[in-house]
């Protein structure tokens, strides 16, 4: 069991790695209703000036949320997400055969009584794909 009060700024709280395939993007497009062809079709992506199909920014943010939720569940934290934000800095490029990998890592940015703010990085293909995302967890 981890308590929010145990966390100190600078602590590295989790790292997670997620493979991303074209099929994942197709499933996300259906589930979210965002069927922009730059996330599904190589020709459409290239016509838009992109190197290849790219993941939805919201798919990447969804993976980050998954990493936060999995960590919180594993740590037995009794806390809820109060705020969650991300700035999409670079696209996650997803080639047809190999797919991509998104590596997520979180550190404690601020710790106050009853709440903790995480700064979360996400890397893919050697690029930082988000300016650090922020997630604030508040004790239930």
């Amino acid at each position: 069991m981890t308590e929010l009060a145990d966390l100190t700024p600078g602590d590295r709280v989790f790292a997670a790695s997620f493979p991303v395939s074209r099929a994942d993007l197709a499933a996300y497009a259906e589930a979210s209703g965002d069927r922009n062809p730059i996330h599904l079709d190589e020709a459409a992506a290239k016509a838009a000036g992109l190197p290849d199909v790219i993941a939805h920014g919201m798919y990447t943010m969804g993976l980050i949320s998954r990493a936060v939720l999995e960590w919180a569940a594993e740590a037995g934290l009794d806390a809820s997400l109060g705020e969650f934000s991300a700035r999409f800095a670079k696209p996650v490029v997803v080639p047809a055969g190999t797919g991509a990998v998104v590596d997520v890592e979180a550190k404690v940015r601020k710790a106050e009584t009853g709440s903790v703010e995480l700064a979360i990085t996400a890397l893919s293909g050697g690029e930082k794909v988000v300016a650090p995302a922020r997630a604030t967890l508040t004790s239930n």
């Binding site: 705020e83 969650f84 934000s85 700035r87 999409f88």
Partner: peptide
């Protein structure tokens, strides 16, 4: 259009 930033307050 490109999605630049996203924030949720619950």
């Amino acid at each position: 259009v490109l999605h630049r930033e996203q924030r949720f307050a619950y």
